[in-house]
Amino acid sequence: MSADIDTLPGYTSGNGTGHIVRWLAGFALRGGSLLAFAALLVFFSVAAPFFFTLGNIGNVLGQSAILGVLAIGLTIVIIGGGANVVKGGIDLSLAANLGLSAAVYATLVSAGYGDGVAIAGALLTGSLIGLVNAIAIVVFGIVPLLATLAVMNVVAGLELVLTQNTVVSASSDFLSLLSAYGPFDIPVLAYVLVIFTGIAAAIIQFTPLGLRLYAVGAFPEAARAAGLPVKRMVAGSYVASGFCGGVAGILSVSYLSGSTTGAGEMLLPVVVTALLSVVFSRRLVPTIGGTLLSTLLVGFLTNGFQLLNISSTLVSGIQGILILLVVAATSLQRGKGAA
């Protein structure tokens, strides 16, 4: 737990050079990441004039919607379970959840059910997966990393059973509405991402519930002593994450005009995005706003590379380097090596 407590900079008592190194690392991360993001936007805008247009920015927002919603789910789990990558909160089943929820939605629609039933089906599927995770972790006490890994495999298997590993195409009024363009010729999905982020941020950052979730994740002992229902809060974070998986599933069906195979490939980008989110917060903790920024960073990188005609395979390499930098800097900043 000590590592978790150390995540709050300024609370640690360091001495001499160690303290300075930590402070510098923290400052470089916080200021540097925003500066780097801004520099990136400026660079792409100059190099590819089309980059900084309303239409393109809207497209990037829309293209980031699925990843963003999933990453917000994971962020909630990380907030509630603590940011320790090994022992803390993590939900590896999110990408598979997206796949199964999308498959449920597409199968229901193609079986002739209405949008209402399909939406309920997808959201219920997602939340149920979250509930299974919650039970495995809170009731049976399995480490989240392993529990959600196991659930991920079960869910991916269920998707295969349901779809026979084929593409299930689906079209409905609601799906067409989601995949259409809204005001200012910006994709509806872009509005969905902004509104979804807004609601999640309002709950997590500005309500007592959200504050308690941070307390439970960062100081579980203190939270328990203060009378907070730690187990229920942690369980709730996994159900919320599962719900996000269901929402992302619906968005994915609208984006791809059906459910397709290969949802599992989303896992790594989701984890990367949620982990990156800490560099966009003042106290280097995961936040919903930070997650939106890191989602957009990945989205703008991919988009800018495409506009500059640079191979998009480089994006994954850059993501890897970013993760290394973040982990290295947060480790330094926690003072592991220096103290």
Binding site: F50, G55, N59, Q63, I66, Y255, L256, L307, S312
Partner: peptide, 23 residues
């Protein structure tokens, strides 16, 4: 040529097409 390869990822394929159309 403005060439993009979706690496058999449908989400990526659609994003790339969307950006290509906007270009």
């Amino acid at each position: 040529p403005i060439a993009v390869d979706a690496q058999r990822n449908d989400t990526k394929l659609v994003s790339q097409l969307q950006t290509l159309i906007a270009q």
